[in-house]
Design a protein around this nucleic acid. Structure first.
Lengths: 341, 341
DNA sequence: CTGTTAGCGCATTCAG
DNA sequence: CTGAATGCGCTAACAG
């Protein structure tokens, strides 16, 4: 653990004042070539790296943007984080990531941690913390929310048009002749879960089909819950020819449940997801789902934050996700699967 | 953006000295109840939060441990990150994550960034940067590497016994009667990729089987590469009854390729992976693979770092992963699949 | 128990 | 163009 080199040491070693070294470091002012060379040589020789904390303290900015995510192990948010990282690249700002685990209290603590680190801006991915808490921090630093609308902060939310997404799914299935369509929704504590369900029901009617409460189930966005819900649906005996899941993970779980019962996809039953996780391309059969450009959304959030930091007032418009038709959907069979027998 | 409150302001407002406030904040010394109450009231009223940068500067520690990962969107490392976060929880230290994207140059930059942020310790996940670079930073701060051996830094590497893992796979398959076993390896720039391949070949011989170079292919750990390699294998016409993949993702890709050709798993062909990603439980059929307790490895790394920070010298022993037999492996069929037809 | 005094490492006035 | 002086916000001796 060799002692860490300071700007002051560099200055002494090079026979100049600390200010000169600082100027060279930041290109704040011109310096005679010979001094510059001398200093740079010393910097290199001593392997000096400026202390970011000190810089932050001195000029009032930490050059870091806090990111509140929910789970580091989530494929969905992981991709968004990658997008944010990418969007910030080249910009002097760096992301500082903390997770809230979908727990309001932890999200609150995470926000406090970020504020103590004096992040220059904030990006919030989903979460269940109250809008009021977000408004409070938004009063201190520029804040951009992804995938959730925060009241009082329009133009600061990168929104996804869930309704439009699920609508495409239903019309696709209806077009294939499906009339009995089952649905597995997500935890309605999350905004998008209710938007998707409402969109599903609305489109059903739009397509001249009726909502059958016996074909509606609720999961929590995990594979296990999807498997369980599909199991229940099948066991209930109520016939259906297509199964719409509110996200890909639950579709994966449902897929397993169908496999267990020997039901073929899409011959016996059509299956759809939402999100288009990377792995959805590799399920058997590849999953028909709604593509969200998660990475791009992350980049967009990053760019928006950068723009906000630069004093601009960016305009946001909701992102319309697109249906990707792969191989898990097909024409409705004549005799609906019930799973019975 | 309201001006940010400082400790000094709190002190003035409460009619005490800054040191007193500091003492209350850190519990460094006793303070009379009345003063304490007064100060805490002011802190609350002004919504004061200490500036971590300033604290770091003042006491020489940033209370952050840098984490060099490769891809934020990776399911594998994501789980490890979650483990690290968990392991650090409650410890005053917080993770600072940066990605290297498996590019030596970017990894180097990431390390520099972390050093400039004056992290108190470092956790490195995989990567392709030279050992020398890691040794250099290890000279400045405690360093723990996960999933890679760094020369000169034994006892600082959380290692996985890849050989033992792949060995279980081969013996499992041999026990099922498979004699023609194909292999899809990873990019050999990564240590574990070569360890797994070498382990595969060694165990084959150990089991009395011979290594058939025509059944060996190389991917890069991605689904796409697994699909491609399986395709080649099948097209080559060389018969085999089992396909061992060096990681789960490639197994997913291979699975799709088999599906495309109408080959049943495990009736026509047995398939195995390595890692036991969460989603491997949900493929159809669920994948037989080698379980790595990735989350736990992350926690272990975090605890080790904490121990190092506390001045202890922890002892490391390689982690032995365990085979998880699910449904993608079965008895060898009588007539091997060749994919030709 | 508590206030005063010095820095921590750097950027930035302000004079030369 | 460059050095000296100041302060960023906080902690840690050091005296009371």
């Amino acid at each position: 653990m060799s002692a860490t080199v300071t700007l002051m040491q560099v200055a002494r070693e090079a026979g100049v004042s600390p200010s000169t070294v600082s100027r060279i470091l930041n290109g704040t002012a011109n310096v005679t070539p010979d001094k510059r060379e001398r200093v740079e040589a010393v910097i290199h020789r001593l392997n000096f790296t400026p202390n970011v904390q000190a810089q932050a303290l001195a000029n009032g900015r930490s050059f870091s943007v806090g990111v509140l995510t929910q789970k580091l192990s989530s494929a969905f948010y992981g991709e968004t984080l990658a997008g944010i990282e990418q969007g910030l690249e080249g910009s002097a700002y760096h992301p500082l990531v903390v997770s809230g685990h979908w727990r309001a209290k932890q999200e609150q603590q995470a926000l406090e941690l970020l504020m103590r680190r004096r992040v220059d801006a904030l990006i919030v991915l989903g979460g269940v913390i109250e809008d009021a808490a977000l408004q409070r921090v938004a009063a201190q630093v520029p804040l951009v929310a992804v995938g959730r609308a925060v009241s009082g902060l329009p133009e600061r939310c990168v929104l996804i048009d869930n309704h439009a997404g699920i609508r495409q799914v239903v019309h696709h299935l209806a077009g294939l002749g499906h009339r009995d369509i089952a649905y597995i929704g997500g935890d309605e504590a999350q905004q998008d879960a209710v938007e998707r369900r409402v969109g599903f029901e609305a489109t059903l009617q739009e397509a001249g089909l009726s909502v059958n409460p016996h074909l509606m189930r609720c999961g929590d966005y995990t594979e296990a819950s999807g498997e369980r819900a599909a199991e229940e649906l099948l066991r209930s005996g109520v016939p259906f020819t297509a199964l719409v899941c509110a996200n890909d993970q639950m579709a994966f779980g449902a897929r397993l449940s169908l496999y267990r019962r020997g039901l073929r996809v899409p011959e016996d039953l059509s299956l759809t997801g939402f999100d288009d996780l990377f792995s959805s391309r590799y399920t058997t059969p590849p999953l028909t789902t709604v593509h969200q450009a998660v990475n791009e959304l992350g980049q967009l959030a990053a760019e928006t934050v950068l723009r906000l930091l630069a004093g601009e007032q960016p305009h946001m418009s909701p992102y319309v996700p697109q249906l990707v038709i792969r191989e898990s959907t097909g024409p409705a069979p004549h005799s609906p699967a019930t799973g019975g027998s």
